[in-house]
């Protein structure tokens, strides 16, 4: 019916193990992205309280720095963005896990108020991010391409054209997959509630 569904994944499927080299690359990227996020966060908090950080801007910033470094120039921009998306996912899942654990330990309750108009006010971000991670892993088993699309778009801030180029499918396919995968994941998140 849809021949592109035969897609198996070329290292973009999120269930595939990360290689040692990728792990080192991620780690370097973590450090940069994270510290840039931190620096911006403290600036933003001092200045405009409603401003937020765009992952796209962060990733682009990190790329510019990596690209000007003499050893990394051969890496393709898209590959970098792909890795960055995965880095962001791991970073947030790790952060959510720690907050979750801290809360349950009850040692230092973390209280924050969400200013966002949010579907599920009762559920803090950390629980949702953890649930999304699990649901994405399930989806990756059933349809690796859709999982890769969500990871790249949500965590990496890739736009439709970039995602299409990266996965080598049409933009229409990306839009179609994104819509159904979003519905699917939203339902999984609700079920886990």
């Amino acid at each position: 019916m849809c021949p592109e569904n035969s897609y198996i994944g070329d290292g973009t499927g999120s269930v595939e193990p990360v290689t040692a080299e990728q792990r080192r690359e991620l780690d370097r990227l973590f450090s940069v992205t994270y510290e840039e996020l931190r620096r911006l966060a403290s600036t933003v908090r001092r200045g405009d309280p409603s401003a937020t950080l765009s992952p796209t801007a962060l990733v682009n910033e990190a790329w510019l720095k990596m690209a000007s470094s003499p050893n990394v120039s051969a890496e393709s921009h898209l590959h970098f963005k792909r890795i960055a998306a995965r880095a962001m996912r791991q970073l947030l899942v790790e952060a959510a896990r720690r907050r979750h654990a801290n809360k349950r330990g009850g040692e230092q309750g973390i209280v924050f108020v969400t200013l966002q108009d949010f579907i599920d006010q009762s559920k803090p971000y950390e629980d949702q991010v953890l649930a999304l991670d699990t649901a994405l892993e399930d989806l990756a088993r059933l349809n690796p391409r859709q999982a890769a699309i969500v990871e790249s778009r949500f965590f990496g801030g890739l736009d439709v054209a970039e995602t299409a180029l990266m996965l080598n499918v049409s933009e229409a396919t990306i839009l179609r997959d994104w819509r159904v995968a979003k519905a699917w994941l939203a339902r999984e998140l609700r079920r886990g509630a």
Partner: peptide
């Protein structure tokens, strides 16, 4: 699925920056 598609937004409709900002806020 159709209900989710028509329904209110989920985490995936949030700008990732908000999510990151909240999760990385200092305890």
């Amino acid at each position: 699925l159709l209900a989710e598609d028509a329904g209110p937004s989920s985490l995936l409709d949030q700008p990732m920056g908000h999510v990151a900002d909240q999760l990385l806020a200092d305890p």
